[in-house]
Design a protein around this nucleic acid. Structure first.
Ligand code: FES
Ligand code: FES
Lengths: 149, 149
DNA sequence: ATATTTAAGGATATATTTATCCTTTATTAT
DNA sequence: ATAATAAAGGATAAATATATCCTTAAATAT
């Protein structure tokens, strides 16, 4: 579905929402370990998520790190995809036609469309925070490791 | 959603289903032009679709080319994905966890699951032939070009 | 002021995907 | 038999995605 880059972005943002506050910032080492991703690569990706300062915030130096404000945590998952440039993902034709259009539809278009719309609302409806909560109360998990790590 | 490779495979198979019979084989040049894909690359991909001789058949030499039997045309679209090794695509976790599992679900799992199931039936339910028919009667299209080409 | 910490950014490496080209093999037509 | 045709297959190239490493800049603590 998504590139590894975007998968790491989703997991990182959810983890930052789960564990950080303005007073409790997270370092890149902790984040990468928690979400099971390559550290340097993840650093670049989180940088992208800080652009515009609407989603992830960062502070350099001692006691610095990454965090999300309560307001940012309430944003929909979609915002992560937008910052990763994957927002156009849901505009594309499933057979790879240059345009996905009702006027010149591919033979799967009309059956794919309602599914695509559900995917769009999947990311539009839920807040990053609500996903983080599911992890906090152990209804869900953000990595595939067992409790010993 | 899919790699370019798989997109070309889907379009090529649908086109072969639409235009070929055992008596009217199609050359790679015609196919690649019709589906707007790079010819040599498409040749390799169609080769994959001939493995096992269940989907696409091929004959070398003069009057040779690619075709599908009526039986093959009735197969579900899913068969194309299987031959392209994309069958596992729908087993993966949307956040990239190593396992997609009910026991250790990611925070999007339970909402993503029913959508994933619809995607699976999308490819399981419709025959390649029925997609080809939509193109034949101009209810659908297999490239983005206008009628002049 | 200086040293320490941590993210930002640049340069580069590796792997994978996408694509082309050329040779070989099978089939047909003459 | 020979030449022509068309797919099969191998080698290689180009583009993109993934990943690492090192230097720079900003913030803090001493
Ligand atoms: S045209 Fe193919 S999905 Fe819309
Ligand atoms: S665990 Fe993530 S989709 Fe199933």
């Amino acid at each position: 579905m998504f590139s590894k880059t975007t998968e790491y972005a989703l997991r990182a943002a959810i983890y930052i929402a789960q564990k950080s506050t303005a007073d409790k910032k997270l370092g890149i080492a902790e984040i990468a370990k928690a979400i099971d991703s390559p550290q340097s690569f993840t650093a670049k990706i989180i940088q992208q998520l800080t652009r515009g300062n609407t989603l992830v915030s960062s502070v350099r130096g001692p006691n610095g790190g990454f965090f999300m404000t309560e307001k940012a945590k309430r944003l929909p998952v979609r915002v992560i995809l937008d910052l990763m440039g994957e927002d156009s993902k849901f505009q594309t034709c499933i057979l790879g036609l240059k345009q996905c259009s009702e006027l010149k539809p591919c033979p799967m278009h009309f059956e794919y469309k309602p599914i695509k719309e559900q995917l769009i609302s999947l990311f539009a409806d839920r807040s990053i925070e609500s996903l983080a909560e599911d992890i906090n109360n152990e209804h869900a998990f953000i990595n595939s490791r067992n409790k010993r790590g």
